[in-house]
Amino acid sequence: MYYVQRNEEGQLTRVEQAPFSGMTGEVFSDTPEIIAWNNARSVVDESLQHKELLQRSDLEMVRVLDDLIFLLIQKGVITITDLPPMAQVKLMNRAQARQGLGGLEDLLNSDDQGIF
Rank of each mutant, 00 (worst) to 15 (best):
M61R: 10
R41L: 10
S47N: 13
E60W: 01
L59D: 06
S57H: 09
L68S: 10
R56Q: 02
D58C: 06
G76Q: 13
Q49N: 03
R63V: 02
R63H: 06
D58Q: 05
L72G: 00
S42L: 14
S47F: 07
E52W: 02
L48S: 01
F70P: 00
L68F: 10
L48K: 12
S47K: 04
V64W: 05
V77E: 14
R41C: 06
N38F: 04
M61I: 05
K75A: 15
E52Y: 13
R63N: 08
L72K: 00
V44K: 15
A40W: 13
N39H: 04
W37I: 00
L65W: 11
Q55E: 13
E60T: 02
S57P: 00
S57G: 00
L59W: 05
L54G: 00
V62F: 07
E52R: 13
V44H: 15
N39E: 14
R41I: 08
R63A: 09
F70R: 13
R41D: 10
M61P: 00
V62A: 07
M61W: 09
K75W: 13
I78H: 04
W37S: 12
E60S: 12
H50A: 05
L48A: 04
I73S: 08
R56I: 02
L68R: 11
I73Q: 15
V77C: 11
L54N: 05
A40T: 14
L59I: 02
D67P: 00
S47L: 11
L71E: 15
L59A: 06
K51S: 08
N39D: 14
D66L: 01
I69M: 07
Q55W: 01
E52T: 09
D58E: 11
R41V: 10
E46A: 15
V77H: 12
Q74C: 05
I73R: 15
N38D: 12
M61G: 00
S57N: 07
L53S: 09
Q55N: 07
S57L: 04
D58F: 11
L54E: 01
V77D: 14
V44E: 14
D45Y: 06
Q49M: 07
D66F: 00
I78Y: 07
D67F: 08
L72M: 10
V64Q: 11
I73E: 15
W37L: 03
L65Q: 05
L59K: 07
H50F: 10
